[in-house]
Nucleic acid binder design. Structure first.
Lengths: 179, 179
DNA sequence: GTCTATACGCGGATAGAC
DNA sequence: GTCTATCCGCGTATAGAC
């Protein structure tokens, strides 16, 4: 039920964007009444916040999983693996990912202490530091934002070839790090 | 008057994001009544569309101006100059740029034939082709999206040093092209 | 716990006076 | 051409029956 509501919101976002997310639409899509919806979530924002939290957790898990599995990997391989994880995740539901990113940044309704984006950047920064890369925090922000930009645009354009896209993001990322 | 309304909308977006843009708020901020507003714009969308068109025109002008002025420049220099133009433009009003980008992509309310984003990508692609760079269209999309991603994130984080940011975007772009 | 019905406010848009 | 006043629909949220 709880999950049905979240998935309904996700589907609406994929079809109509954030603007289509009304409590009525979510309830109807989820197959429950508006009254029931409010027994699971105190308000509309809470739905978006929880959805964002879950999606971000998936991405964060994939990325830090890669980082932990191969602590001995070279910097290039670590970056490559992280990019692959990000591409696969983001291409799975491109519009959803894009709209939620925007929601998080614009409607700052997710507790600031728990900012998800920072979490992922921190993982990347930690990886860079492990390889003694200078200015790790700055570089991590740049890597994440360039990758996000490229992947969002590719998803919006309808690209589906994760391998090809990963390779291109890799060129930008490794080029940035080496230059 | 026309311009007052557009500037009012821009200010509201900078302060409250797209969600704060109501016709009432725009009219009040512009110092006109709601009735007068509707003599200049047929509806709310038209305001956002025209604002987007103007902002995009500024960026497009800066970028293609650079491209035309120095047709003899090397690929690296051409890319560098375009990046500088983009960074300067986007850092001038970071949140406005970011929100309008999202509005254009999500609320597809700007005539599809006149898609502004494609226009800029085409300029970049033409420049790449002039230098015989392979897969120019794909590369142009990647360059624009990685730059947009990095600049948006930097603007959101409050960065203001255009030179430093340009240098970092340049690393990613040239790294991508050379790799 | 789930429903229906409804109160309430806000925002888009128009009418019509001046 | 600019204003005020207003209509109308939509969306949030709650009340209260079952």
């Amino acid at each position: 039920m709880f999950n049905d509501i979240l998935e309904a919101a996700a589907c609406i976002i994929e079809r109509d964007g954030l603007g289509g997310v009304s409590t009525n639409a979510v309830a109807e899509t989820a197959g429950v009444s508006i009254g029931s919806l409010y027994q699971y979530f105190p308000n509309q924002i809470a739905i978006l916040a929880e959805l964002t939290r879950r999606e971000r957790e998936l991405l964060r898990g994939g990325i830090s999983g890669v980082a932990l599995k191969r602590e001995d990997a070279s910097l290039d391989h670590a970056v490559e693996d992280m990019i692959k994880a990000a591409v696969v995740h983001q291409l799975a539901r491109p519009r959803l990912a894009r709209e939620l990113d925007f929601a998080e940044a614009s409607l700052d309704l997710i507790p600031k202490t728990e900012l998800m984006g920072d979490d992922i950047i921190s993982s990347v920064a930690a990886m860079l530091r492990r390889h003694a890369y200078p200015r790790a925090d700055e570089a991590a922000q740049d890597l994440v934002s360039m990758a996000k930009g490229m992947i969002d645009a590719a998803g919006l354009a309808g690209e589906t070839d994760a391998a090809a896209l990963s390779a291109r993001v890799r060129r930008a990322a490794l080029g940035y790090l080496r230059y």
